[in-house]
């Protein structure tokens, strides 16, 4: 079966070991509540990570996703509070995300600014302007049940964020593995000149990558706002780093050319279960910052070694 590549089976194995270890250590690990909580917090990361996988595959990166997500929680809460309409809230969010994605993509392709710097700058701009938009957190005053359902509800006993993620997931698995666009993204990341000389419009697909990522941030941001029942300025701070660390851990290359959605999912589950384990084992929560830092460095280090061996 080609579906699980060797790298993914290693991740799967690590994941299984973690689960077995934790369930022995603390049987609570397998409680429905705990599993729901792991899956719920994984879903928001996964949704954004689908876009980040595409971007990294095409050799780009977006550091502004965390700041954008915080901004989205504020916008969606505010607009629904004012208008009383979820539809209007969503339109505002996705319109805004579309705009930010376009700007990121155009600064990258037209001004030719390294995407790391371009999106870092966008991160600063969003972080500042969200406070300009509103200094205080925005609380849910509309109390529309459907809105709370998005993040907190269940469908067939599955948390809604997971349902949303599962609806989006197949689209990206198919996109990356079975359509020509998936091939284009990896060709652009692996050898941009060869891609261009094969008649691919590299810049167009790069812009599309940035836009898709921003729109997915919109989805995750709405879920987060519903979960917290607030729109908060710093609610997704540091989110970009967790997403990137997970995608790289999943086997997508920082140098472009290779991306896997399944690997990304496994990477996120591993990080989230470690997070969960840290709580279950009563290890200080601060390790939730330290562990992804260490894992990020190691994952890229091993990626480098893997590349050297395959050359």
């Amino acid at each position: 079966m080609k579906f699980l590549q060797s790298n993914e089976s290693i991740l799967f194995f690590i994941l299984a070991l973690l689960c077995i270890f934790l369930s022995f250590y603390n049987p609570q690990f397998y409680s429905i509540q705990n599993i729901h909580s792991i899956l719920r917090s994984s879903s928001t990361v996964m949704i954004v990570a689908f876009g980040m996988t595409i971007l990294l595959t095409s050799g780009e990166v977006d550091l502004s996703v965390g700041a954008l997500m915080s901004f989205v929680t504020v916008i969606v809460m505010d607009v629904i509070n004012i208008s009383g309409s979820i539809a209007l809230g969503l339109i505002a969010v996705f319109g805004f995300c579309l705009l930010i994605g376009l700007i990121n993509g155009l600064v990258r392709t037209v001004l030719n600014v390294n995407s790391l710097i371009a999106t870092l700058a966008m991160m600063l701009i969003l972080q500042g302007s969200v406070y300009v938009y509103s200094m205080a957190a925005i609380y849910n005053t509309h109390l529309i049940p459907l809105f709370s359902f998005i993040g907190q509800g269940f469908f067939l006993n599955i948390p809604m964020p997971v349902v949303i993620m599962l609806i989006i997931l197949p689209f990206f698995v198919v996109l990356l593995n079975f359509t020509r666009y998936g091939r284009y993204f990896s060709a652009i990341g692996s050898n941009p000149d060869a891609a261009k000389l094969s008649g691919i419009n590299n810049n167009r697909y790069k812009v599309i990558g940035f836009v898709i990522t921003s729109l997915l941030v919109g989805v995750s941001g709405v879920i987060l706002a519903s979960l917290m029942d607030t729109g908060q300025q710093g609610s997704a701070k540091g989110f970009e780093l967790i997403v990137i660390a997970a995608v790289l851990l999943g086997g997508t290359s920082f140098m472009g050319g290779r991306g896997t959605i399944i690997g990304t999912i496994l990477g996120i589950l591993i990080l989230k279960i470690i997070d969960n384990g840290i709580i279950l084992m009563r290890i200080p929560q601060e390790f939730q910052l330290i562990v992804p830092g260490v894992i990020l460095i190691l994952a890229v280090y091993f990626d480098g070694i893997r590349r050297k061996n395959s050359d």
């Binding site: 692996s190 060869a194 691919i200 050319g257 290779r258």
Partner: peptide, 14 residues
Amino acid sequence: IVKDMNLRENMSLP
């Protein structure tokens, strides 16, 4: 050549 791709994928790219 696109070095992350196999022979078939390289051939069909355009």
